[in-house]
Amino acid sequence: MNQRTARIDPRLFDRLPIGRDPAAVRARVEALEKLLERSFVVPGINRPVGLDAIIGLIPVVGDGIAALMGSWLVWEARNLGLSRWQITRMMGNVGFDALLGLVPFIGDAADLLFRSNTRNLRIIRRHLDRHHPGTVTLEPGSR
């Protein structure tokens, strides 16, 4: 299935492991990032968007909710034992995204270009790949 036809399985969160082990955390943060940043493709612009961009359309409140949801990734990273520098970078990504969202129209466009949750997932993946190599998963279609 390619990215244009990808759909979120409604049972996705029913199958997520509950636990503090690195494999369970990886599954949860990847699912949340997909929900927030790549839920579906908007026809015409052919770019994946998620709840972060849609919720961000609600003035002030939407960006606050999106920032809280993005902060959950930072919480998971903290529980994994990422360094203070990595946590600070992740909080900066969420904060910058939230500040951009406060600017009418520009903030909504920025949600399509500056994907703080994707950036934060990349930081978490790098940490997990280095410190917990058993949690590495292959993307569908990759070898």
Rank of each mutant, 00 (worst) to 15 (best):
I87T: 13
P140V: 04
R15E: 14
D14C: 04
A77T: 09
M1Y: 00
V25A: 08
L112H: 02
I124A: 07
M91Y: 03
L128T: 01
I18S: 11
T137I: 15
R20M: 12
H131F: 12
E33L: 08
I123H: 10
E76G: 05
R119H: 09
T137D: 12
R11Q: 13
S116Y: 10
E33R: 15
R38H: 08
Q86T: 15
A24E: 03
F13Q: 05
S71N: 14
P48D: 05
L35R: 01
R15G: 09
G50Y: 00
I65K: 02
P140W: 05
V94Y: 00
R130G: 13
V74E: 07
P22H: 08
G62T: 01
L82W: 00
N120E: 06
L16A: 06
M1G: 05
H132A: 08
D14A: 09
R143P: 08
G62C: 04
P22L: 11
R130Y: 12
V29I: 15
L80W: 01
I87H: 04
A110W: 10
I45W: 05
I54N: 07
L73H: 01
R20C: 09
A27H: 10
L35S: 03
H131P: 08
D52Q: 09
R126I: 15
P59W: 07
P48E: 11
G50I: 01
A77N: 08
V42G: 03
I87F: 03
G101I: 11
I87Q: 12
R38L: 06
L82H: 01
L35A: 10
D111I: 10
F114A: 05
A23L: 13
L32Y: 01
R126H: 13
N2I: 00
E33G: 02
V25I: 15
A66G: 08
Q86L: 08
G19K: 03
I106H: 01
R119V: 04
V49P: 00
I58R: 05
A24K: 03
V136F: 10
V94W: 00
L51Q: 07
G107E: 03
T137W: 13
I45P: 00
R7L: 12
G101H: 03
S142R: 06
